[in-house]
Structures are given as structure tokens and as C-alpha cells.
Amino acid sequence: MTSATAPREPAQYVTIGIDREVFAIEVGIVREILDLQPITRLPHAPPFLVGMIDVRGQGVPTVDLRVKLGLPAVQPTANTRIIVLDVPQQGQGASLTVGVVADRVFEVTSLDGQDLETPPQVGGRWRSDCIQAIGRSNGTFVIVFDIARLFAQDDVALLTMADAA
């Protein structure tokens, strides 16, 4: 079954690893990919908001995707990366710049909209409301994030406050 919201033509995605899974983020919202750098912790922040990083003089709130997805935090490795995103805000023309910590970054790949499937609604390990579709790349299932939903309104407000700090 093909998703009605999936792209109709092959789209480019950055594929990342979180735990044992492969996720994809649309290339169009990826500003840059950084090696892990010092993160300034914020007092009283929720566990998923690990702090702020400096990206060319701009303070960027940074989220641990493992924790955001309900997994335990782990020590960074040589493969840990921060992906700086311009997250579209629902109902607004503006976007919010946010860094997301991923266990690793694999590659930029094309996923054909005809091969993307609607995520099953059977519960399970990941919140299905933050998944746009499921596809395949190099024989592996790839879970395509719906970034706007992953960072729901409450999270956007929180990240905006962190950005202002």
C-alpha cells in the first residue's frame, strides 16, 4: 500500500542510524552534518534536550534522537554526529533550527515514492505519528521521519525558549 502523503518522484534523504534502525530525513531540511562537539547543558531541560551548540555564532538547541524516541542515552562514539536541521513549523512559514544527535550518518540516498509504504498502526517500538513512511534502501528497511510531527508544538515551544536562552 502506497502512502498518499509520500513523494511521487524519487526524493533525496540523509540516512542515519539510531540503535539498530535506519531512519531517513529529507535532504531539503538538512543544513549541515557536524562531528560531535561540546554541548552546553541547560538547567531543568527535559531529558531529550541535551543543550545548546554553537554553529557559526548561532546558538542551536540540540536534541538526542535516542532519548526523543524513548531509548536510553548512550555514550557518544567516533561515529556520533549532530545533524543541523531547519524544522518546518506547522501553520507557520518560518522554520526552527535544531541539532539532532544521531548514533551515525550513513549516506544520502533516493527513495522512490512508489516504494514508500504507510507505517503500520500496530504499536511497537516507535511512535507511528512521527513516521511519514517506510521504504527500502540497499535491502534494508528505512523509516522516514515526519520531522514536523517529531517536534510537536510543545517541543517547538520548548526549543524556541532554549534558542532564546
Results as ranks from 00 to 15, higher is better:
V105R: 03
V100N: 01
A102D: 00
T118I: 11
D112Y: 13
V63N: 05
A102N: 00
Q92I: 00
L150D: 15
Q121P: 11
G139H: 13
A152V: 09
I131Y: 09
A133G: 05
V100G: 03
Q121V: 12
Q121A: 11
I131R: 10
D129A: 13
G99C: 06
Q153D: 13
P88S: 09
G135L: 04
A73K: 10
V122S: 11
D129I: 14
P76Y: 07
T118S: 09
G93S: 00
N79S: 08
T62C: 12
V98I: 12
Q58W: 07
P72A: 05
K68E: 03
N79A: 06
L96D: 01
L96W: 01
A73G: 11
A78T: 15
G59H: 06
D115P: 00
R127S: 13
Q153E: 08
D129S: 10
T140A: 12
N138L: 05
G135W: 04
F141W: 04
G113C: 13
P61K: 14
L65M: 09
Q89G: 01
G59Q: 06
T80I: 06
R149P: 13
R136V: 09
V122L: 12
T80C: 04
V108H: 12
G59K: 11
E107N: 15
R127D: 11
Q75V: 08
Q114G: 12
V67Q: 06
L111N: 06
T97K: 07
D146I: 09
G135Y: 10
G99V: 07
Q132I: 02
D129H: 09
Q132K: 14
P72T: 04
E107W: 07
R81H: 03
A133H: 02
T77E: 15
V108Q: 07
T97N: 04
V101F: 11
Q58D: 10
R136N: 05
F145G: 14
P120L: 15
V60Q: 07
I83P: 02
W126Q: 15
V122I: 10
V108R: 08
C130G: 09
L65E: 00
G91I: 10
V60W: 13
D115T: 10
L71K: 09
Q121T: 07
E117I: 05
I83A: 08
N138V: 02
G99D: 14
R125Q: 11
Q75P: 03
G70P: 10
S128P: 00
T80R: 04
P88A: 10
G139V: 08
T80D: 04
P76K: 12
Q114T: 08
Q121S: 11
I83L: 11
P61H: 07
V60S: 08
S137V: 05
D103Q: 02
G123A: 12
Q132G: 11
G113M: 12
L65S: 00
R56L: 07
L65Q: 00
D64R: 01
G57Q: 08
R56T: 14
D64Q: 03
I134M: 09
V74D: 00
D86K: 01
V74T: 11
D86Y: 00
E117Q: 06
T118H: 12
F145K: 05
V63Y: 08
V74P: 00
A78Y: 09
